[in-house]
């Protein structure tokens, strides 16, 4: 069968959808198993600007599930992730902050973003960041995660519109512990949910 003389309509539509992501500015806090993987997905999706923050450095144990490499152990995560994302494309603008994010600096760091992605580890920080983002970035959708650990069914990890401007990814109950460690596969499923819900919101489809 001959190739069509011009791109199929579906492909043109897809190019248009990608173009609609180019002006978008997405903030991610936490560059671990969730955040580092969400970042590369949004870069590949064509999001124009990412604001990335994490105070931590790459640890050898992070290589089990995070988007870093063995020769990057010891580097700040912001520095290592920037380098890895730029190997995919230099088209995405990256604004990186090697700092702990809390009520004191969230508004300043994430001013002007279209979606706020919570991708930190502890329950305390998750609660603090969702509250702070709701107060300091009014009207900005928040895509958070809770319940991504262990070997439970991949199908229990879902996206919910939880309340207000908050979308919540996970099975809501699987807390990380010695019996329920973080597996690359299940964390990546959750990261995919968070990245894709972000894309949907940016394209104007806020239903989970």
């Amino acid at each position: 069968m001959p190739y069509p003389a011009r791109p199929a309509p579906a492909i043109e539509e897809y190019a248009d959808l990608r173009a609609r992501l180019a002006p978008a500015r997405v903030g991610i806090v936490g560059l671990g198993g969730l955040g580092s993987n969400i970042a590369w997905m949004l870069v590949r999706a064509g999001v124009g600007t990412l604001v990335l923050a994490d105070h931590d450095r790459v640890d050898a144990s992070n290589l089990e599930r995070q988007f870093y490499f063995a020769d990057q152990v010891g580097l700040p995560k912001t520095e290592a992730l920037s380098a890895n994302l730029r190997r995919i494309t230099t088209a995405t603008r990256l604004e990186c902050f090697q700092t702990h994010v809390d009520e004191s600096n969230l508004r300043e760091l994430y001013a002007g973003i279209d979606v706020f992605v919570e991708a930190v580890d502890t329950a305390h920080d998750k609660a603090m960041l969702v509250a702070a983002a709701s107060e300091q970035l009014p009207g900005v959708p928040i895509v958070a995660a809770s319940g991504v650990a262990g070997y439970g069914s991949p199908n229990d990890v879902i996206t919910r519109h939880l309340m207000g401007e908050v979308w919540m990814v996970g099975d809501l109950v699987s807390e990380v512990s010695a019996e329920h460690p973080l597996f690359a596969s299940r964390v990546a499923i959750a990261a995919g949910h968070q990245a894709h819900m972000t894309v949907r919101i940016l394209l104007g489809y806020p239903e989970a």
Partner: peptide, 27 residues
């Protein structure tokens, strides 16, 4: 409360929607 974060001191009013979610660690 009604879709926005509210501190413990927040006084509720008729018709408010109060929602409480417990995040768990891991990420």
């Amino acid at each position: 409360v009604n879709g926005r974060h509210a501190p413990d001191e927040h006084t509720l009013a008729e018709g408010d929607r109060l929602a409480i979610f417990p995040p768990v660690a891991g990420g």
